[in-house]
């Protein structure tokens, strides 16, 4: 049983308090949506959750241990997908996926072509990302959630630049991950179309 817990968190950016006293917890199968207007601290919250931004007040724990004390274990258990795609436009889809797979620790055997097919880019293995559209690049970036087989996904605006079909694919992925006992935290201001799965909400700002 895994537990992700945020306790009394405060976020200060450029001398502004974006939010304070924020607490929530997520257990196996938990699905959490963070929404709020632009600049309300959605991305900052996610970056604090993964330890990129220093925590000034409050604490975040993974399985009862502060994430600063179990950095390696925590990074092994989670996958972060930011508002930038984290892929190189000078590499092909396949090369990017190989790097992502390596960085995630070669955890599982993966079939790159199959993953591309699942994400809606069938047959584009050897296409340079600089020749792809914004939505296609985003999809290549999203393939990292297949590589890592991590417990916790943190997705920052995952639907940006994606078309209807792409959005649907990601929604299905998120739900099936949660149904299999995973946890997902994502920030978006778009409405999610998830039928029959309990969704937690945090509204910032």
């Amino acid at each position: 049983m895994a537990l992700f817990k945020v306790n009394n968190l405060q976020c200060v950016r450029r001398d502004n308090i974006l939010f304070q006293g924020l607490s929530f917890k997520l257990e196996d199968g938990g699905l959490l949506q963070i929404d709020g207007v632009n600049g309300s601290g959605k991305s900052s919250l996610l970056q604090m959750c993964i330890g990129l931004i220093q925590i000034t007040e409050g604490n975040i724990s993974w399985n009862q241990t502060d994430i600063r004390d179990c950095r390696y274990q925590f990074q092994t258990d989670m996958t972060y997908f930011g508002h930038t795609n984290g892929v190189k436009t000078g590499l092909t889809a396949l090369e990017n996926m190989k790097v992502m797979h390596a960085l995630s620790g070669f955890k599982s055997e993966v079939d790159y072509s199959l993953i591309l097919k699942q994400i809606g880019l069938a047959g584009m293995d050897d296409v340079l990302l600089s020749r792809m559209s914004a939505g296609q690049k985003r999809r290549v970036g999203l393939t990292r959630i297949f590589m890592a087989s991590s417990k916790l996904w943190l997705l920052d605006e995952p639907f940006n630049a994606l078309d209807k079909n792409g959005k649907k694919i990601i929604e299905q992925l998120i739900v099936s991950h949660c149904k299999a006992g995973g946890m997902v935290i994502f920030a978006t201001h778009q409405t999610m179309e998830i039928d029959g799965y309990p969704l937690q909400h945090i509204h910032l700002g």
Binding site: L52, Y72, Y80, G82, N85, V87, M100, L103, S104, G105
Partner: peptide, 12 residues
């Protein structure tokens, strides 16, 4: 392009 975040968050 955000690759640096992914390097920091990698398992190495």
């Amino acid at each position: 392009d955000g690759s640096i975040e992914q390097l920091i968050l990698a398992r190495y």
